[in-house]
């Protein structure tokens, strides 16, 4: 069985004044920067890296550039049987 992941604790609560009866409330959207920060924090935890708060802005900036360039590469359609460049030869 696959468990559904718990909601992240950092999700912002909807302000009380917007919780009126029967009224549809727009889901709060986090700014993109925060989303990437969550990714960095989770990644750092998984990799056992300690990131000082003062470094976050620069790390985020570099990661944004790398992901932007990655997206350019990923957008290029390649056949399923495309081999990656380094091929191990026994």
């Amino acid at each position: 069985m696959t468990r559904r992941p718990r909601k992240a604790k950092t999700v912002r609560k909807v302000p009380r004044k917007n919780r009126s009866k029967g009224r549809k409330v727009a889901k709060p959207t986090k700014p993109k920067r925060e989303a990437l920060d969550d990714f960095i924090v989770a990644g750092a935890r998984a990799l056992d890296l300690k990131i000082d708060e003062a470094w976050m802005s620069a790390v985020r900036g570099h990661l944004q550039v790398t992901l932007r360039l990655s997206a350019l590469v990923a957008a290029f359609a390649l056949p399923d049987d495309a081999e990656p460049a380094p091929v191990f030869k026994a």
């Binding site: 990799l47 570099h62 790398t66 590469v73 990923a74 390649l78 460049a85």
Partner: peptide
Amino acid sequence: AVRDRLIAGAMVPATLVNQAQKFRRW
């Protein structure tokens, strides 16, 4: 300046790196 780039590099998903290596051969 080097450390922050390297930390960011550690976060790049493997799927994107593999795609870059595939593109490299093409």
